[in-house]
Design a protein around this nucleic acid. Structure first.
Length: 275
DNA sequence: ACTGGATCCTGACTGC
DNA sequence: TGCAGTCAGGATCCAG
């Protein structure tokens, strides 16, 4: 479900109402997420004050406490997870696995049908957590440059598309935006990562940045079930040039967009414009 | 060290 | 209407 723009849209939606709030109660209805939800989560969150809601890659970091009593809930939405606010007392529906109740405010409710998401806890620096410690640069950070990507791709025979989706190379680029970025850069998704020039890599890193920035501006992409903290869909779907457009005309050359499977993931591209 | 494949899980959709 | 098969926005783990 969510790639970086959707997670960032979620973060921007929930952060204002959570930051500074005190957590009154946490309810975990199903601990069977990607990894079991630790009971430590409720113990540490209850009564704590939220200091910030940050994002690293596709992880949301709900930071609590002050000085020597700090900690962080590490939340991932997986393929099908959502966070949204509901009025206190709203009865939980199917797959509503976690509630975070704040004083005198709405309830933050986590819904995740496929349970690929996670809610974990750490008392330490979350960036040092095993899940986050070895992540690549943020795609909107200047560190994600053409030179960096070129260097990180030397000797790699893997296709550029799954390479872009590898979080050790760059984070936040999922299946939709990998296809969209490659279209924008004019690079064929099956081209070997190690055989793309530094010049083209700099076009590609710029394309990734533009696509993600634009998608955030549109509130993300809603294909079927993404909604922000207030239940609004993302409108970037209308801006997609290749994703989910198999057989439809390329916006540039008008020849049909092609769909192939690369690394078990659907991939869309224009065979004329992308080489 | 890389790479490709299987895997976790539920729901929506397609075709018979 | 029912049922089987396929696919889905992620990412880890494992074998070769």
């Amino acid at each position: 479900m969510p790639e970086l723009p959707e997670v960032e849209t979620t973060r921007r939606g929930i952060a204002p109402r959570l930051t500074g709030a005190r957590i009154a109660r946490v309810i975990v209805r199903d601990r069977r997420l990607r990894w079991p939800v630790p009971t430590e989560l409720e113990d540490r969150l209850t009564g704590a004050r939220i200091a910030a809601v940050d994002r690293r890659a596709k992880y949301l970091l709900i930071r609590t406490g002050v000085e020597n009593r700090t900690g962080t809930a590490i939340v991932h939405l997986g393929m099908s997870g959502h966070l949204r606010f509901v009025a206190p007392g709203t009865p939980p529906g199917a797959h509503d696995h976690v509630d975070v109740e704040i004083d005198a405010g709405p309830v933050l409710r986590f819904n995740d049908p496929r349970r690929f998401g996670c809610w974990l806890w750490t008392d330490d620096d979350p960036l040092e957590h095993p899940l986050l410690a070895r992540l690549g640069p943020e795609p909107l950070d200047p560190a994600f440059s053409g030179d960096y990507l070129h260097a990180a791709s030397r000797g790699r025979r893997i296709a550029i598309k799954p390479h872009l989706m590898n979080a050790a190379i760059v984070v936040g680029v999922g299946n939709i935006y990998a296809s969209e970025s490659l279209f924008r850069a004019g690079i064929h998704p099956l081209r070997a990562a190690g055989r793309i020039s530094a010049r083209r890599m700099s076009v590609l890193t710029a394309a990734v940045g533009e696509v993600l920035t634009e998608a955030i501006r549109y509130g993300g992409t809603t294909l079927r079930d993404f909604y922000d903290g207030d239940g609004r869909p993302g409108y970037f779907r209308n801006e997609l040039k290749v994703y989910d457009r198999a057989g439809q005309p390329c916006v540039t050359c008008h020849r049909p967009i092609r769909q192939v499977t690369i690394g078990q993931r659907s991939t869309f591209y224009c065979p004329t414009c992308q080489t």
